[in-house]
Design a protein around this nucleic acid. Sequence first.
DNA 1: GTGCAAGTGAAAACCGTTGTCAAAATCGCC
DNA 2: GGCGATTTTGACAACGGTTTTCACTTGCAC
Lengths: 129, 129
Amino acid sequence: MSSRRDAVHEILRQSEGFRSAQDVYAEMRAEGAKIGLTTVYRALQALADNGHVDVLRTDDGESVYRACASGDHHHHLVCRRCGRTVEVAGPAVERWAEAVGTEHGFTEITHTVEVFGTCPACSAAAKAG
Amino acid sequence: MSSRRDAVHEILRQSEGFRSAQDVYAEMRAEGAKIGLTTVYRALQALADNGHVDVLRTDDGESVYRACASGDHHHHLVCRRCGRTVEVAGPAVERWAEAVGTEHGFTEITHTVEVFGTCPACSAAAKAG
DNA sequence: GTGCAAGTGAAAACCGTTGTCAAAATCGCC
DNA sequence: GGCGATTTTGACAACGGTTTTCACTTGCAC
């Protein structure tokens, strides 16, 4: 229905890593798209609600979004320099989280797991520079 | 040196779970302490920098702080209702994160892992209510 | 007491995000 | 195609947590 939402989704699909709302907005405007910041936020929220994109919070409280290949539950290995992201599955971690929770009598266990590092390209660049 | 910072630290020590800066500030004022919000923020940042308290971000972007018993690396099992927190160690998770990173050629691997659930008291209360 | 560095806090600035509301686009129906 | 109803859009204002600013106070050395 909404071409704007699709446009936002498309930007994320073309991105290697997580992008912030402001970032997506800036890129769309730079490409000449006529879109408002409000609409970008709404599109991202809607996409996140439908599970079409993954959301996480950066250390400084910004929400960042990514169109992930897998719709299933998975985690991310994110380069802290360039933001490039690899989707990773971790059955062991899922089990561990569940076990830790039930062990203490907790129910309805959920968890957040993110792995950060410096990707090969960036560590090479750092060494060269 | 600063008695204010100690006071802030003390509030956290007496708390069961993570507390927000505003929350700590409100409590101190309620107790009659003469302190400014600015100072609370500064104290919390300093404590976090020195590793005396752990920090994490809530889903709505607020920073929350906790004085943890262990100075070592550990994770948290947090009740999503009352905020009560249990410190948990997860050697398996540490290894998994490291392995996932190196497997993709990433270096300087770090990770964030938090487990959320409903604690026994809160799930009992929910059932009763 | 004097001088200086560090600490403090009220108020303002900041910044990402969310709400408001009128204009514009789209849909359903004839 | 025409037309009213509904949805979407976006400029702008508000919001809320955090950070900065800056003048004032406090503690310490001399």
